[in-house]
Design a protein around this nucleic acid. Structure first.
Length: 498
RNA sequence: GGCCCCAUCGUCUAGUGGUCAGGACAUCGGCCUCUCACGCCGGUAACAGGGGUUCGAAUCCCCUUGGGGUCGCCA
């Protein structure tokens, strides 16, 4: 206890805030949704800021769609993001197991206890009967169906001794249930809106609202931060806490992340799955920075390091408005984070992408190459792509660029330049620039005339880092060779039909 | 439809009764320049509408409109 209090190195009141226990509870859908990442992030930040515990729990009480496989994708994504958990799958913890599908006896015990205390009851209605009641209700134009079980109050006996039953909560019909949300403020819902929702299905599996509360109670969760879509789940859950005689945690409901069209975020807005951003060469810290700024702010600051986020994050700065996903702004934040990295670090991170392209550059050259593209690239994929020509022999030459610049009329200049370069020593950018300018002056040519043909010969493209930097990284031998090899492409010589 | 939530530039936001309503992304000009970027300078651009409260409202209250969420033996 004392040790835990000491671990809170911030200005929080002793005792209460020092026991921060938060959780992220995804269901195994096969991938980690980018919106879920923000929820996870805010929970994680809160735990880390206060030296508390961040718990990962897998909500797989439904069907068989879960699979270890889709869980591992989520864990992998969390690890890539650097959102480490103190308790959960693979790391264990004192409140495990952390898969709901492995906690079934616990839910049953809680449910039976609620039946015993009169807070819940066994409902023998079949699924068909409930569906029929719903259909009848809707036929009458009703939209807000609430099943009223004949077993709720009366002494009605079970159909027969071993009849299957679901366990339902005996919810209050009057009054209201409310709470103070950390981002939305006071929220109250009339209890008429509540219903005797199912805790345990006939097959013994718990439903979300029930399992969630049991686990949050068992795991000692002090603050539940989750998506906006769960605000309607909170009042029923509050009923459960009351029935259980436990004080509920605090709640913080984060506004949704919408697509650019204001609708639900979908593939049309770019990637929705975390691994896609990883594969597209985004940096975890950049993604997290962008996500944090979606709904949270700290004055005018836009770019945050991870440790700054941890130090600064607070619920009072979380906005209540839904935000739209903006790939352009993400790209900006990503570029900022990339540029904050050293050449060596970028080289290290880009290496897998280079290898994916079949290149295995030596580290020193790669770092030098990275230095020339770092202000031009946004993602690591960009880095790999922009640096490609340094390491591919021969370089890939863009056909249109060749057709325009690697033509007879520029040949003489290219050859003269090659001859000149052969004599330059040392072969560094400053020296190269000085000698080339000297040569230009002597020959009466302009850099504008010579630069593009040389650039295409050297890099295969019309856009590239500065010419002299490129030459220096390439080295004398390859620079000269590429200038000389870059005669009109064969395809062009034959393009007239010869 | 019931219930709940939300509402400042195109977008993310600052603003907590008195500001020329600020910043950032995007966008549009310009500078730099061997291309493309980076960088720098500058511009366009917002308090959804209507009522109140107040000496004074982006800020407080109500209504309207618009948007979102949710109404399962899914999570």
């Amino acid at each position: 206890m004392i040790a835990r209090t000491d671990r809170c190195r911030h200005d929080c009141p002793p005792g209460v805030m020092s026991e921060v226990r938060v959780r992220f509870a995804p269901s195994p859908t096969g991938y980690l949704h980018i919106g879920g990442v923000r929820t996870a992030l805010f929970n994680w930040l809160w735990a880390r800021r206060h030296g508390g515990s961040f718990i990962l729990r897998i909500e797989d009480t439904d069907v068989d769609r879960n699979l270890r496989e889709s869980t591992s994708v989520i864990l992998e994504s969390m690890r890539w993001l650097g959102l480490d958990w103190d308790e959960g799958p693979e790391v264990g913890g004192p409140h495990g197991p952390y898969f709901q599908s492995e906690r079934l006896e616990l839910y049953r015990a809680y449910a039976e206890r609620l039946v015993a205390t009169g807070h819940a009851f066994r409902c023998y209605a079949t699924r068909e009967e409930v569906e029929a009641a719903r259909a009848a209700h809707e036929a009458r134009g009703g939209r807000d169906f609430r099943f009223v079980s004949p077993w709720r109050d009366g002494r009605r006996p079970p159909p027969h001794s071993d009849a299957p039953y679901a366990i339902r909560l005996r919810a209050p019909r009057t009054g209201s249930t409310g709470f103070v949300d950390l981002v939305k403020g006071r929220i109250d819902v009339p209890n008429e809106q509540q219903q005797d929702f199912v805790l345990l299905r006939q097959n013994g599996l718990p439903l979300y609202n029930f399992a969630c509360v049991v686990d949050d109670v068992e795991m000692g969760i002090t603050l539940v931060a989750r998506g906006d879509d769960h605000v309607v789940n909170t009042p029923p859950q509050l009923l459960l806490y009351e029935a259980l005689g436990r004080t509920p945690p605090r709640f913080a409901h984060l506004p949704m992340i919408l697509g650019q069209d204001g609708k639900k975020l979908s593939k049309r807005d770019g990637a929705v799955s975390t691994t896609e951003y990883r594969d597209a060469g985004y940096l975890p810290d950049a993604l997290l920075n962008y996500l944090a700024r979606l709904g949270w702010s700290h004055g005018d600051q836009e770019v945050f390091r991870r440790d700054e986020l941890v130090a600064l994050f607070d619920w009072s700065r979380v906005g209540a408005t839904a935000a739209r996903w903006d790939p352009k702004k993400l790209a900006y934040i990503q570029a900022e984070h990339l540029r904050a990295l050293s050449d060596a670090r970028i080289a290290e991170l880009a290496m897998p992408f280079l290898e994916r392209a079949g290149l295995r550059p030596d580290r020193r050259t790669l770092e030098a190459a990275v230095a020339t593209v770092r202000t031009r690239a946004v993602t690591l994929v960009d880095v790999a792509d922009m640096v490609d020509f340094y390491f591919r022999e021969p370089p890939r030459i863009d056909e249109q660029a060749a057709a325009r610049f690697l033509v007879e009329s520029t040949r003489a200049a290219r050859e003269e330049l090659a001859a000149l370069l052969e004599t330059v020593e040392p072969f560094d950018a400053a020296t190269l620039e000085a000698r080339v300018h000297q040569w230009l002056q002597q020959t009466g040519r302009s850099l504008k005339q010579v630069a593009q043909p040389a650039r295409v010969a050297l890099t295969g493209r019309t856009a590239s880092p500065g010419l002299f930097e490129v030459m220096a990284v390439l080295g004398k031998e390859r620079t000269v060779a590429r200038l000389r090899a870059a005669d009109p492409r064969p395809s062009q010589l034959t393009s007239t039909g010869g």
